[in-house]
Design a protein around this nucleic acid. Sequence first.
DNA 1: ATCCCGGCGA
DNA 2: TCGCCGGGAT
Length: 379
Amino acid sequence: MFLACPIRNSALSITFARRITCTGMSKRSSSSMPITSNESPPGVQSSNGVSKSETRVFVRRTVKKKAEGQYSGLDLELKDDVKRCCPPDIEDFAFKRTKDSPGSRKSKPPLDTLLPRIEDSNPTRQKGVAEGGKTPVDWEKVLEGIREMRSSEVAPVDTMGCGRAGSTLPPKERRFAVLASSLLSSQTKDHVTHGAALRLQESGLLTADAMDKADESTIKSLIYPVGFYSTKAKNLKKIAKICLMKYGGDIPRSLEELLLLPGIGPKIAHLIMIMAWNDVRGICVDTHVHRICNRLGWVSGKGSKQKTSSPEETRVALELWLPKEEWVPINPLLVGFGQTICTPLRPKCGNCSVSHLCPSAFKETSSPSPKLKRSSSTK
DNA sequence: ATCCCGGCGA
DNA sequence: TCGCCGGGAT
């Protein structure tokens, strides 16, 4: 079969990782969405007033890290379910790798033999990445090093997220809940996503039918704290309608169909495939994975390009050589790493234990170009 | 004050 | 390819 049987190994429950870190409360005071009570979001009240109240006690106030595990009942029930069908959190993947022999893979280099063969026998996949699909040396040492750093630093990565939503519901509802949570997750911290999903659930909106009937402003108010809530509220309604009309209230089963849904791009689509269908169709590449893989020199673009220019390109290049067992855990691992050490702006190479294996180490650390740019002070 | 984020339309 | 969306992090 085609269903990616090889990797479909039950054991994959993902959770995606989002940045989370503690944050203070929002600083912006001139919001257009006044929030007066911490229980009732704005939207509902038609958001008439403007910035009259700065209370905004709302959810935005960051919660603590997942480590403190202050999840609500949903979680508990979920855990049960999770144990059954999906193992631990993705976070677990990140640190302790899956149950399937931790060290074994590390010590044995199956790639050397597998890789070449794959490329040869799989011409379709290497389009555009012909010579770029080489397996980087020491990649296992790098991953292991990152795992160690992660396990000791308590990274903020979110360990929950969409997978949690509606875990106690019947399959169809659970999948819709996963899709909704996944959509909410982008640009949003895990606890916020979780809170929004929980609110949707409490309002009984985590089903295609209910979501379709729900008032858009109601949805907006419930998910207000998530990034781009307005757009997402609209997309959720559209998606709900599509699910009802084309999929009997369920969500699309294929990656291609998921991509046709508004607001669902490559990253979220792969996430949904993994979480809702337990089907690993590809690596979930977000900007953290994209950035870090490029810094490590793990992916190269078409032609002679040394780096890939988009997450999608990175995904394709990475899938060429990274063993499938790593496809799911690579995301939470690198996201957490990207949040704490290999940050976008000033990567903390000094705190990185694998900097000696990184071609980009200390090259963009402090302020290589900023100074130059600043001098002109044009703008 | 910028940069960043994921998807998307211009 | 750029910029927007609505905020957070730096």
